[in-house]
Design a protein around this nucleic acid. Structure first.
Length: 184
DNA sequence: AGCACGATTAACT
DNA sequence: GTTAATCGTGCTC
C-alpha cells in the first residue's frame, strides 16, 4: 500500500529534506489499523549551532536520538502535555531533524476525521508518543514509516520563519525554515 | 534540590 | 489578543 521512503531519502541536510517531505505520507500501523496523512507543513532544525534546535545543548539524554542515523524518529514531550514528531536526517553523528507540523488525514480509525493541522494534534491523531521515540522509520517491519506521495508544485510551497521559537536570537529567529502548502 | 521555560492548544475576553 | 494547563529538561545554586 505505498512504497516506504528509504534511508537515502533522509540522508541530506534538514533544509533540503523539509520541503522534500511535503506531499509524502506519514503512516502509523497501530493495533492492526492504518492511520495516515499527507504531510503539508514541515520545519528544519539543523545542528548544535542552530540556537532554535534542541541540539544547541549538545548531546544529552533527550537529544541523543538526533545524533542517530537518518530515518530515525525523534519524538519529544513539551508544554507538560504535548508530543512532537521529527524525522532525523543528515549523516549519523550530526544532529539535525525535520519537525512535521501538519497533515491532511487520509486514513484513520473511527467515524470522525481527526484534525492534524498542528504538531501536537498530529501526534495525537496518529497515536505517536514516547514509545515511538527512536524507532527506525526505514525498518521494513516497523510500525511507523513514510511513503512516497505526490509532491506539490514548487510554486505552491510557502516559506516562513519557524513557529514558536520567539526567544532565540537572530539570525535563527527569522530564517525561513518553515515550509507548507495548501491541499485543496 | 530548585527553578524557569518550552519546536502548543483550547478556551477565554 | 490573552491565558491556563502541566511536567520533562537543562541550567544554576
Amino acid at each position: 500500500m505505498g512504497e516506504r521512503l528509504e534511508r537515502s531519502f533522509f540522508a541530506r541536510p534538514a533544509l533540503e529534506l523539509a520541503p522534500a517531505l511535503l506531499g509524502m505520507r506519514l503512516v502509523h500501523w497501530l493495533e492492526n489499523m492504518r492511520i495516515a496523512g499527507i504531510i503539508t507543513e514541515t520545519e528544519a532544525y539543523d545542528g548544535e549551532h542552530d540556537l532554535a534546535c534542541h541540539a544547541r545543548a549538545g548531546r544529552t539524554p533527550r537529544t541523543e536520538v538526533m545524533y542517530r542515523q537518518p530515518g530515525t524518529a525523534y519524538v519529544y514531550f513539551t508544554y507538560g502535555m504535548h508530543w512532537m514528531f521529527n524525522v532525523v536526517c543528515a549523516e549519523e553523528g550530526y544532529p539535525a531533524a525535520v519537525l512535521v507540523r501538519a497533515l491532511q488525514m487520509v486514513d484513520w480509525v473511527g467515524p470522525e476525521k481527526p484534525r492534524a493541522h498542528g504538531p501536537a494534534l498530529l501526534t495525537k491523531a496518529l497515536g505517536i508518543s514516547r514509545p515511538q521515540n527512536g524507532l527506525d522509520l526505514c525498518d521494513a517491519e516497523g510500525e511507523l514509516w513514510l511513503e512516497y506521495g505526490e509532491p506539490p508544485d514548487p510554486a505552491l510551497i510557502r516559506r516562513k520563519p519557524r513557529v514558536g521559537i520567539g526567544g532565540v536570537p537572530e539570525p535563527w529567529k527569522s530564517l525561513e525554515w518553515n515550509f507548507r502548502f495548501d491541499l485543496s
